[in-house]
């Protein structure tokens, strides 16, 4: 556990090393949320079918912007396989999965610590559009944590294909497209065509955005919460075993390039 915390702490230290980068990080956070909301505001105002829904859409995309940053990840295992630096971790008595997880948790902690500035920006620019729901923070955070792990393991499985493909950027791009469309990040589930929505409900991508939002906005019944928690845990366990299987097979292909 100490090793896990040390890795997490070092990742946080790296994030805090460059002052100007921190400043631009804050600016990009604010711009991302505010610009996305104004874009949707323009779309909602110019489209009669969204009449009366403007505030819902704006509030939804504020959530999307925040949750995406918390459940997203930037894994490095594929590049480590490509340049051979994976060897450094394979030689240590510490799981490479745990190492990646510690780094991503460090990143999520840093993102969470910057949330106050996003919230301030929202209050400053968008407060008149925010719908006040009967928020359920407990369920929201529960699905946020589950979403983080689902997103982590899907990304991990994709990155592990680098053992065979060497470069996985194209695969990563396809994954990002699926996440954008099927997680509710691009279109709220309530506006999705029924056929796509039915498929999306069965896939793990909904845990990355849709379910945390549904949890926070208290739109789930107790039965739905239970079913979805079981489904998310089942996906996480399955993805963990798939990743472990691919990793074991991949190690046989690994040639530890680069000297």
């Amino acid at each position: 556990m100490m090793a896990f915390i040390s890795i997490m702490r070092s990742h946080i230290s790296i994030s805090l090393t460059y002052k100007m980068n921190i400043l631009f990080g804050y600016i990009s956070d604010i711009l991302y949320v505010v610009l996305k909301c104004y874009l949707w505001l323009a779309i909602a105002n110019s489209n009669p079918s969204f009449a009366g829904e403007t505030n819902y859409i704006i509030t939804y995309f504020i959530f999307v912007s925040i949750i995406m940053q918390l459940t997203g990840n930037r894994l490095t295992i594929a590049s480590n396989i490509l340049d051979g630096s994976l060897s450094n971790w394979l030689l240590k008595p510490f799981s490479i999965f745990k190492y990646e997880l510690a780094q991503q948790l460090g990143r999520a902690v840093m993102t969470a610590s910057r949330l106050w500035i996003i919230i301030l920006a929202i209050v400053a620019f968008m407060s008149s559009y925010i719908v006040i729901w009967d928020y359920n923070y407990l369920v929201g955070i529960l699905f946020l944590v589950l979403g983080f792990f689902v997103s982590f393991y899907i990304a991990l499985v994709i990155q592990l294909f680098a053992f065979w493909l060497m470069r996985v950027e194209a695969l990563q791009f396809i994954y990002t497209m699926f996440v954008d469309i099927l997680s509710g990040g691009m279109i709220p589930y309530k506006y999705m065509p029924a056929a796509i929505k039915n498929i999306a409900e069965l896939l793990p991508f909904k845990f990355i955005i849709q379910m945390p939002i549904a949890g926070f906005t208290n739109t789930l019944s107790s039965g739905e919460i239970l079913n979805n928690v079981i489904m998310a845990v089942a996906y996480i366990v399955a993805l963990h075993f798939i990743a472990a299987f691919i990793f074991k097979k991949g190690l046989k292909k690994y040639t530890a390039m680069g000297g």
């Binding site: 040390s6 070092s10 090393t17 240590k92």
Partner: peptide, 20 residues
């Protein structure tokens, strides 16, 4: 091969090593 964390002092890498 470089095992040191590029952006941090070597002592930080040593501390991770100590914990592992």
């Amino acid at each position: 091969k470089n095992q040191l964390i590029w952006d941090l002092p070597p002592m930080e890498t040593f501390n991770i090593h100590k914990a592992i």
